[in-house]
């Protein structure tokens, strides 16, 4: 596997292979020297066309823990501001001979395009409403650490399904791992056919939330909404917000972050014993190390030259 564009590429075996490694990568942080030399002398470029705190910082840290060199580029303050096209930016960066390019972009399909324009391995860190495979991997990792396996686990994904790449990737990954997934949200935020496409049940209210083992709340992406999707955030919170009194004992709550407290999740739920949000963040670095290792450790630097010669 050269690139990681969407979770479907991996299948259950691929997910398990990467996450089994992630478990041992996690312990690197507890050493006196918090890095291993596995990717020494390789360059990883983070290219972010959307704001992000945890994805960009965890990819940067993951690359550094593997001793790779890292440059991180954000669209604001770069030549993207001056009108440079994505293709020209990639061509420029490719001249630095990176081993991997981690890309986040507001348009679905951007990572796939980048993969055609560079010889580097491309990791999709979120493209529009399409996919966010490393988020899906860290979500599965978090649940495996809590429950062992996901087989038979009942997982509800609640909220803004329409604008969420997390919903697509994470629901697909949970399904591949044997969980039964329910998508829940207001009808205006549930694209037609999404249940069939992802193999999930679709519901429009929280009446049966008590059956869930895991409640995965999605962020209300007001920056992506055209207006009119929901009457107001308050009304959304009243009907779909996950509050302490809607939860039953032993249910765990997840969220990809950043949380709108009081909208999709009540503030006291975020800080309660139900919450696995801290575990999700902690899993991010180890899982991204495992992804970089999976894509780069088997590749000789010379492959780039050879591929270029045969192209």
């Amino acid at each position: 596997m050269k690139h990681l564009i969407s979770i479907d590429q991996l299948g259950r075996n691929g997910i398990e292979r990467i996450l089994d490694r992630a478990a041992s990568f996690g312990s690197v942080a507890s050493r006196e020297v918090q890095k291993v030399p596995a990717l020494r002398g390789r360059l990883v470029v983070n290219l972010f066309y959307e704001s992000s705190t945890r994805t960009t910082s965890s990819f940067e840290l993951a690359a550094k823990r593997l001793s790779a060199d890292v440059i991180s580029i954000r669209s604001s303050g770069s030549s993207v501001d001056k009108g440079e096209s994505l293709k020209d930016t990639i061509t420029t960066l490719d001249a630095y001979e990176p081993a991997a390019i981690v890309v986040r972009h507001p348009r679905a399909g951007a990572a796939d395009l980048v993969a055609r324009w560079t010889r580097a391995a491309v990791i999709n860190a979120g493209d529009g409403a399409h996919a966010h495979p490393t988020q899906a991997l860290l979500d599965v990792h978090t649940l495996r650490q809590r429950f062992g396996e996901l087989d038979g686990l009942r997982i509800w994904i609640v909220g803004d399904i329409a604008h969420s790449r997390v919903a697509r990737s994470t629901a697909a990954a949970f399904g591949l791992m044997g969980a039964s997934v329910t998508l829940c949200g207001p009808p205006t935020l549930l694209p037609p056919g999404i249940g069939a496409a992802l193999g999930c049940r679709v519901v429009t209210n929280l009446a049966d939330l008590g059956e869930a083992d895991v409640v995965y709340a999605l962020r209300m992406q007001h920056e992506r909404m055209q207006g009119g999707d929901v009457p107001s955030l308050n009304e959304y919170a009243a009907l779909y917000g996950i509050t302490a009194d809607r939860l039953v004992a032993n249910q765990v709550v997840m969220h990809p972050g950043p949380v709108n407290r009081g909208v999709e999740l009540a503030g006291d739920v975020v800080d309660s014993a139900h919450s696995l949000i801290g575990e999700q963040v902690a899993a991010g670095v180890a899982v991204r190390m495992a992804v970089l290792y999976e894509l780069l450790a088997g590749v000789e630097k010379d492959d780039r030259v050879r591929e270029a010669a045969t192209a």
Binding site: D20, R21, S24, F25, Y293, A297, G298, V299, E300, K301
Partner: peptide, 10 residues
Amino acid sequence: LGSRGASPVV
């Protein structure tokens, strides 16, 4: 690393 490929299990 390059010549032997990624270890199946770390």
